[in-house]
């Protein structure tokens, strides 16, 4: 579904990605793990078109989407719940969700999708008319995931869904991610620092280190890898 070939991204003189290649198959959950600053978020930003690619290719569903404007990439079927959640603090929860469905014209279906979302994240329903800025961290995370889902993406990019969330909620959020993957058949590329959690739900995993892919293997294998255990699983 998604294939990245030899991708390079620079921020000024800083090389953020030094030629990474990865593939995400249809229906999979793929985890991208690694330390802070390894280039995980940059990879997602390059895919969704908000970071400039200096060289390499990003192919989605057979189409080259490298350096296309973000709204074109959303239209192609990729949506991105970004690092730091980026909830519109000045818009209500409902308006935030409606922005997620910005490119869709099927009003009735959007309403149904919002109802479905409330069944996954009941908390959001209680907050429907409140400004996004008034929501708690966990609620904002649910809103960010929900908002990204409302585009009805084929591929969902999730950046650190566990960041800043109470530990008890982290588990819930990961359960919901699996639910979304199974029930909506949404393919997911997941960036996480919580490697243990990420590998427990993923089909396949990539380990990033200073802008490069260090290792990749099926998630269960990766979780058993001695190097990974030591560096990222704290064992």
């Amino acid at each position: 579904m998604l294939e990245i070939r030899n991708l390079h991204v620079h921020y000024g003189a800083v090389k953020a990605l030094k030629g990474i290649s990865l593939a995400v198959g249809s229906g999979q959950i793929v985890a991208l793990i690694g330390a802070n600053g390894a280039g995980k978020s940059t990879s997602l930003r390059a895919i969704s078109g908000i970071a400039d690619v200096s060289s390499g290719e990003i192919i989605f569903d057979g189409i080259d989407i490298t350096n296309k404007p973000p709204h074109v990439i959303v239209f192609a079927g990729i949506s991105h719940a970004p690092e730091g959640r980026m909830i519109f603090a000045n818009l209500t929860t409902r308006e935030n969700l409606e922005m997620g469905a910005y490119l869709r014209k099927d009003k009735g279906e959007i309403r149904k999708d919002i109802e479905y979302l409330f069944s996954i994240f009941p908390k959001l329903k209680e907050r429907i008319n409140q400004p996004g800025g008034k929501l708690s961290g966990g609620e904002q995370q649910m809103l960010a995931i929900g908002r990204a889902l409302l585009a009805r993406p084929k591929l969902l990019l999730l950046d650190e869904p566990s960041l800043g969330i109470a530990p008890i909620l982290v588990k819930t959020i990961f359960q919901k991610i699996v639910e979304i993957n199974k029930e909506l058949q949404t393919t997911i590329l997941l960036v996480e620092q919580n490697a243990h959690m990420a590998l427990s739900i993923a089909d396949y995993g990539y380990v990033m280190e200073t802008g490069e892919i260090r290792l990749h293997a099926p998630a269960s294998e990766l979780a058993q890898n001695e190097e990974v255990k030591k560096a990222y699983l704290g064992m």
């Binding site: 404007p69 973000p70 949506s79 000045n90 409606e98 922005m99 910005y102």
Partner: peptide
């Protein structure tokens, strides 16, 4: 209106708005 909500979204954060599929 949707256009107005998009304006407010863009005024809050260009990047987040772009990720919604809004043509900035």
């Amino acid at each position: 209106t949707k256009m107005g909500a998009a304006m407010r979204a863009v005024s809050y954060n260009h990047q987040a708005a772009a990720l919604m599929g809004i043509n900035i």
